Every structure is written in structure tokens, then in C-alpha cells.
Amino acid sequence: MKGQVHLYTGNGKGKTTAAIGLAIRAIGADLKVFFSQFIKNGEYSEIKALKNIENIDIRQYGEEAFINGQPDEKDKASARKGLKEIKEAINSGDYQVVIIDEIAIALFFDLIDEDDLFEIINNRPDNVEVILTGRMAKESLIDRADLVTEMKEVKHYYQQGIMARTGIEK
């Protein structure tokens, strides 16, 4: 099976959820998954659940949330460390599915170099499926992916003042 590159992007809810769904499907088929997250750090509900499942390794490469501000050198250092570990995971032979959650945002904020990411993706073993997520995907990332799904927000209850709820959005 030749691995493909998926991209889940757009301003709608469900990008990480879609990637996790694919991870569950892969684990059900006895594949091993490396699940990495840029930007995020912490015990989100999905992270707590995934830690209870065999055949998935989880890494987070986020620092203090800067999403309302600008990243600093600490954020960039964490992202570079993440990219290095992702390269090692992809090339280890241990994983058939590698999820790189929020990579589009990491690229948008220049936390990592796009050429470094593409070098890793383009030189991966043939059997490794790569799943990329994040809003504000650059055109070059869309062009590189084999499958692109755009989550489009049509309506969301946060517009009525309903904040993120544990177990649903966080």
C-alpha cells in the first residue's frame, strides 16, 4: 500500500476530529500511529482518550498559546524539535500513519520551514500515510497533498456566545 498525504483544512470545526477518526480506523486495522500536535499542549479530552489506546504514540509541540498574539523563540524551538521527532518517526519503520495536527498553522506563523516539511514528506518510506491538519493552509501545502478536505463553517453556536465545552470542543 502506497501512503498518501491528506490535508484537512478550512475554518470549520472537525479537522483534528477527522484525523483522530482516521487514527482509530488505522489502529483497528493493526497499523501503528504517530500523532503529533503543533501549537497545542495539554490534556485535552481527545489526548486523554488516545493515551488509553494501544498502537498510538502522542507528542505535543506547543508552548503557551500564542494564537491571539505572535509566536516567540520558545514556540519556534518547540516546533523545530517537533519536526525533528516527526522525521525520526516517519523514517523509523515503526509507524504506518503519521498525523501532524495543526501543521498548517505552524507554517502560517513560520514556526517551521516549509521546505523542511516537504523534504520529510517527499522522502518518507512508501508505506507511510501522512495526515496534515490546520486552518489557513498555504496553497503550496494544498498542492502537495494527495487528498484535501476543506471544513467550511456554515454556522457555529460560538456566534451565540457558547464557548468550547469539555468533551465536545475540548
Rank of each mutant, 00 (worst) to 15 (best):
I53L: 12
I27N: 05
D143N: 15
Y44V: 06
G167V: 11
N68R: 13
I162A: 10
M1I: 13
A145R: 04
K32W: 09
Y157E: 11
R144A: 08
I99Y: 06
H156E: 08
V33K: 04
D101F: 02
R80C: 02
V33I: 01
D72N: 14
D94Y: 08
F109D: 03
K48Q: 15
K87P: 02
F35Y: 12
A79L: 00
L31Q: 10
V97L: 10
V148W: 06
E114G: 06
D72F: 02
E64F: 12
I105K: 04
A104P: 08
K51E: 09
F118W: 14
A26G: 10
L31S: 08
P125E: 01
P71S: 05
A77L: 12
A137M: 04
M1D: 10
Q70R: 15
R25D: 03
V33D: 01
D57Y: 06
Q4C: 12
Y44L: 10
G134E: 02
K87E: 00
I131W: 01
K81Y: 01
D110V: 04
H156D: 05
I162V: 15
E139Y: 12
G134D: 02
K2I: 13
G161D: 08
A79V: 03
A77I: 13
Q160L: 15
N122Q: 14
D30W: 12
K170F: 15
A19F: 00
D101C: 02
D72Y: 07
E73A: 13
Q159P: 09
M1T: 13
I121A: 00
K76S: 12
K170M: 14
N11H: 07
N122D: 15
T17E: 05
I39H: 06
T166V: 15
D57I: 00
G167Q: 12
I168N: 04
R124A: 13
D72A: 03
N123T: 14
I67P: 10
I53R: 10
V154E: 09
E46R: 08
A29E: 13
M163F: 13
E169S: 07
M136T: 14
K15T: 07
G3K: 08
A79S: 03
E88R: 11
F108S: 09
S140C: 07
K74A: 10
Y44C: 06
D72H: 05
E46L: 06
D110Y: 06
R124Y: 11
N123R: 11
I24G: 05
V98K: 05
